[in-house]
Amino acid sequence: MTPALLELDEVSLSRGGRVVLDRVTLRVQAGQVTAIVGPSGAGKSSLLRCAVGLDRLDAGRVRVDGHDALELDPRVLRRRVALVAQHPVMLPGTVADNLAYALPAGAVDGEAARRSLERAGLDVSFASRVAGELSGGERARVAVARALTRDPVALLLDEPTAALDPARAAGVEALMRELAGLGLAVLVASHDVAIVRRSADAAVLLEAGRVTASGTAADVLDAWAGRPA
């Protein structure tokens, strides 16, 4: 088995005395789409937060490309492993300002902005739009483009299709496959069974903060479907 690009090893997290993640182990391969499935409140979003160091782990470790995440500069880690939130927040200014935020001056030229926008399914004309005036679906795409301008090796998506109509959801699905095809490790938290079944190579089932099944997307979804409600 090739070494995983992103590894979470026995990761535990508690918040206000409540156990949120309990010794979760997860491997995300480059060039693959890996899905985290499970009921609401199972800890899917928290797991993504832990992967980018937004929450302090109680135990366990995160490795990126074989390196312990604690040894990486958190700012570098969050560019290499880019997390796109379920309801992305647009920063003040234009879409171009958002794409270039916190990057060295000149790092995102017109060409880089165009490439990121087009990959996220947006026209280059979006660059000059005021980010705060975009619709929910447009924000979601700009958030993906914003992550891509950071040249990540892994892209973490939290419920990327939750607020989208079926046509746009299919677009996100195609985008995930395309990015994996370019060699990125894609990790998606979703409870959209159909999309996970179609687009994910591997999956884990998270229930009450614990991994209760892992394997191919089909096996994991079948295991989840077999659970008493």
Partner: peptide, 13 residues
């Protein structure tokens, strides 16, 4: 807080 965390996620200190 979500705006502040967005900035962190984009690689800001």
């Amino acid at each position: 807080l979500d705006e502040i965390e967005t900035r962190l996620l984009l690689g800001a200190s």
